[in-house]
Every structure is written in C-alpha cells, then in structure tokens.
Simulated scan of single mutants.
Amino acid sequence: MSLSSDYFERMFDASDDPWSFRTRWYEKRKRDLTLACLPKQRYQRIFEPACANGELSALLAQRCDALLCQDINHKAVDLARRRLAGLAHVRIEQARMPADWPEGTFDLIVLSEVGYFLDAREWHLVIEQALRSLSNDGAVLACHWRHPVEGCAQNGDDVHAALADRLPMHRLVRHEEPDFLLDYWCRSPTTIDLGETFESSRV
C-alpha cells in the first residue's frame, strides 16, 4: 500500500528539510552524481515528480529549456517555488502520482527517491505512464535508497528491478553503491557527443 499524504504532512510539519537535502554531504554528492550521469548537456523538457523542497530541481533547471516539478505536499510545493523563484521556465504543481500524471511529452523524466513510497501496482502504473510520456529520444533517470524505509513495502532494489523489467529501453548508466542505485535508460543506445562544446549555465 502506498503511504498516505499524512506521512508527508508530518515530515514537512517537523522540518522544511526533512531528509536534510540541503545539509548532508551524502545528498549533495548524490545530486552531483545524478547530474553527471546525464549524457546530454541540455534537455528540452524535464519532468521531476516528488520534487520535495526543490534542491535537485534547482540543478535540473540549469540543464533544460522547461522543467515541470510536482509534489504531493503543499508545503513542499511552496518551498520548491521559493527555491526556484524567478525562473520563468520552471513550473511547480501539487499533484499525486500516478493519478495526476501530466499531459505532454518529456525528453527526460527524473524518478528520484519516490518509487518505494508507492506500492508495486502504483509503481508499475508510473512506469507505464513514463513510457507513454517520453519523446522519441526520451530518457528515464532513477535514483533510490537501497535500505528499508519505514512503512514502505518496497526498497530501492525492488523499484529498480521493476524499471529494468518494464522499460523496453537501453540502460546507458548503472551506478551501484551499498546505499543507493542510480540508472539511466534511453530509447536509443546513444553516447555522449564528443564534439559538443561546453555551454555555461543560462540559469
């Protein structure tokens, strides 16, 4: 069974940063690895569900022309909006997966620390929706904690096993540590363009 919205209400009532995204070296390093695993310098349209207080979102915003973020919790949405204030190409909405999946297509969907909060049935629906929402050269990046999470039936290994089983895509990147998994799937087995020149951030 998926965790109720009350769980996240309690988390954000207790702290603006309930998972210490802003202060823990583990979280900063994981964000840096996440961004480093993206083979494209820039994406047209990125979707990040479960954005929490927007720490990863702020970095994704530097790598795309349009970013859509969602979170189930109203306080998380407010925090993320403040974190990314002034960025016209970013939209942040309150929504619940998988029921409130957005319309349109994306060339990158980032599923970070979200899968184990859903039961297996809902997670499978998320994977199906992600596939339907990807552009022709779209990609999925997933990153999840591997240890048990209180109240959750799945862990990171379960979440990534379902992705590997249900995404008919090429896995370009696999980063595995005792604490977390990071995978990047793409529709085509593309590699980094070695002739591409570096662009400084436009954000």
Rank of each mutant, 00 (worst) to 15 (best):
A76D: 12
A130Q: 10
A162Q: 12
R121L: 12
L87V: 02
V173H: 10
R146N: 14
S135L: 09
M169Q: 08
A142K: 07
R82M: 11
G138F: 11
V114S: 11
R187P: 00
L108V: 03
M169R: 10
S112P: 00
E113R: 02
L134R: 10
Q94S: 05
A120R: 15
V90P: 13
G104F: 06
L181E: 07
Q94F: 03
D107V: 06
E176H: 12
L111S: 09
G115N: 04
R187E: 01
V126W: 05
H124F: 00
L68K: 06
C152M: 02
I109M: 07
W145F: 14
L141H: 11
D137M: 09
G115A: 07
F106A: 10
G86T: 10
R91P: 00
A76M: 12
D78R: 15
A164M: 09
L182I: 11
C152Y: 03
V114C: 15
S112E: 03
L163T: 07
L134M: 12
Y116L: 03
I109K: 01
A99K: 10
A95Y: 10
G156F: 05
C69G: 04
E128N: 12
L182T: 11
D179P: 01
L118Y: 08
R171V: 12
I92P: 03
Q94K: 15
P102F: 03
C186T: 02
A142S: 15
R166K: 13
Q154G: 00
W123L: 11
E177A: 14
R166S: 14
R166C: 06
G138N: 12
G115F: 04
C152D: 00
H124G: 07
E150Q: 09
Y116W: 08
H144W: 05
N155R: 11
E122G: 00
R83I: 01
N73R: 09
G115I: 03
A139K: 10
H170Q: 14
H144I: 07
A153R: 00
W123Y: 09
A164D: 13
I72V: 15
E93F: 02
R132T: 09
L141W: 09
M169T: 07
R91L: 06
R174L: 13
D183T: 10
L167Y: 06
V114N: 04
P168D: 13
G104A: 07
P148D: 12
P168I: 08
R187H: 04
V159P: 04
W185M: 08
P148I: 06
G138Y: 08
H160C: 08
L84D: 06
T190N: 01
L111I: 02
N136C: 09
A120S: 14
A142C: 15
V149W: 01
D158V: 03
A153N: 00
I109W: 02
E150M: 03
A88Y: 00
H89Q: 14
V77W: 01
Y184T: 05
Q70P: 00
Q94G: 09
